[in-house]
Simulated assay, not measured.
Amino acid sequence: MIVLILLLTITWMALQSSFTLPDLIVGFLVSFAIVSLASRFLSMPFTDGGLGRSRIDNRHYARLTFKWIAFIGFALWSILKANLDVARIVLFRRVADIRPGIIAIPLDVKSDAGITVLANLITLTPGTVSLDVATDRRTIYIHCIDVQDADAVREDIKQNFERRVMELFP
């Protein structure tokens, strides 16, 4: 927990472009509030001991923080790579050679938060858009700008996107 609070405090100070004691205090208080509010969302107790609350291992928070950092890095890399792919399609391919399509992808992720993050990650990646999630939440439908092999696109999304989302939101 303290690792996450410190990372958020440093981020706060960097965004303020000021490394003064008042900014440190305000950043710490804002970070503490964010972590305490987010702890319910992440289904983790906030405090260590006291009043019958369970004790939390700080290594868990550090591991979760590093997973989030890795996920954000992966998302940014995927967005950059997809931008280059879309630029290559637009600049160097004839319109007749582009094969757009809608693909149904079976979902292993079950939580609402996981499905939402996956759908947003797909939509943020240029060349793909999440269209709908089936009412039984077992399938997501996406539109791809160029589908040469639907099975390859499906496998890529399941192995790269969904697997990483499931590490954070089972």
Results as ranks from 00 to 15, higher is better:
G49A: 03
P22M: 08
R154D: 11
R164M: 11
F41N: 02
T125Y: 01
Y61C: 12
I56R: 15
T11G: 14
I102V: 13
C144V: 06
R138K: 15
V90E: 01
S130W: 02
A70F: 05
S31Q: 07
V26S: 05
I122C: 03
V109E: 11
S43N: 11
I25E: 07
G73A: 09
R154K: 14
A75K: 10
F66W: 14
G101T: 01
K110N: 06
K67C: 14
K81M: 00
E167L: 15
P100I: 05
S17F: 09
T47K: 04
L37D: 00
D108P: 00
P100M: 09
N120V: 01
V165L: 06
D112W: 03
L107F: 10
P45M: 05
T11H: 06
R137D: 12
D48F: 11
I25Y: 12
F161V: 14
S39N: 09
D132F: 04
L37W: 04
V117R: 02
L91Q: 04
D97W: 07
P45Q: 07
T47C: 01
I142A: 10
S17P: 00
T128M: 07
W68C: 10
M1P: 10
V3A: 14
V95T: 06
K110F: 11
R94M: 04
M166N: 02
V133F: 05
D85H: 04
I69Y: 02
L118F: 11
F71M: 13
P100L: 11
V30D: 05
G49P: 02
L6T: 11
I56M: 13
R53Q: 13
V26L: 15
I102M: 15
L29N: 07
P22F: 07
P126R: 07
T123Q: 08
D108E: 15
P22C: 04
A14F: 14
D156Y: 12
H60N: 03
A104D: 15
W12N: 10
S17M: 08
D156K: 12
V133Q: 04
W77A: 08
K81D: 11
F74Y: 15
V133W: 03
L7R: 00
N58V: 09
S130Q: 06
L80F: 05
D156P: 04
G114V: 03
L24Q: 08
I69R: 07
I56K: 13
V129K: 03
E155C: 00
L29S: 06
V129E: 02
F66T: 13
A104I: 02
I89C: 03
A119W: 02
